[in-house]
Write a protein that binds this DNA or RNA. Structure first.
Lengths: 125, 125
DNA sequence: AAAAAAAGTTAGATTTTGCTAACATAGAAT
DNA sequence: ATTCTATGTTAGCAAAATCTAACTTTTTTT
């Protein structure tokens, strides 16, 4: 399964919901992302088949090692980008929205370089 | 016509080709983007219908006012992002690739703020 | 236990954006 | 003028990611 932007968003959402709600079902993902239940059901089926998530008898979703790796990776980009944009004066709502869109296109190299720049060479407000 | 990422890329390519080649036909766009002739033909038809480009009898393409506005907008983001990434140490090839992907997700606000930051608050190497 | 509500699935449609195959047209070269 | 080559178009296919409608299953409430 080639990981598409859409898949990255689903996995990231599952991670975030796990952190805030403690447990995650398909319906929570649907509500959080504003998608219909069938859309989420379909995506979760693909993720199950590709071992990015496990789903227990009660419908509760957990990320597999690989799923978690992808989710963490994207979430890291998201947080860094949002933080950086806010630091240069972008409104926090806009920064969060933009981070969602930008996080998928950032290469590993740019991610690392921007993270370093942000954390070590931008200590002035 | 809602302008999709794909449309932004086509219009940006037309602008770049106009600048480098002087004139642009569908075949040039196809070669530059690595797409088939039918894909480009179809896209150009939509752009014609939506008055984003004009095509003369010889098949030469010009951007309309609206098409040019979109192309310039995206191209500005592209140049700024690539310049910024290079300035923080990203390899120029990677920076150009990343700029292509990031340019579509950047809001006007983030674009302006990042441009200002890059041009006025990053004068050290 | 029966009914109602919530959650999940299946089937099928739609949109976007690419493709190949086949055809048409135009321009250039011999 | 005929042929070859380049360019463009039409028709139809495919994958990804969404949707609605309808159905099933599970859980909760009474």
């Amino acid at each position: 399964m080639k990981i598409q932007e859409s898949a990255e968003n689903y996995l990231e959402t599952i991670l975030k919901l796990k952190n805030t709600l403690g447990q995650v079902r398909s319906i929570d993902v649907a509500n959080a992302m504003g998608f219909s239940k069938p859309s989420v059901s379909h995506a979760m089926k693909l993720f199950r088949e590709n071992e990015l998530i496990d789903v227990d008898a009660g419908g509760y979703i957990t990320l597999t090692e690989r799923g978690l790796e992808i989710a963490n990776n994207i979430y890291g980009r998201h947080m860094m980008l949002a933080g950086f944009l806010m630091a240069i004066g972008v409104d926090s709502g806009v920064a969060l929205e933009d981070a969602c869109k930008l996080e998928h296109g950032l290469s590993d190299e740019s991610y690392c370089k921007l993270k370093h720049f942000f954390e070590h060479e931008m200590k002035k407000q």
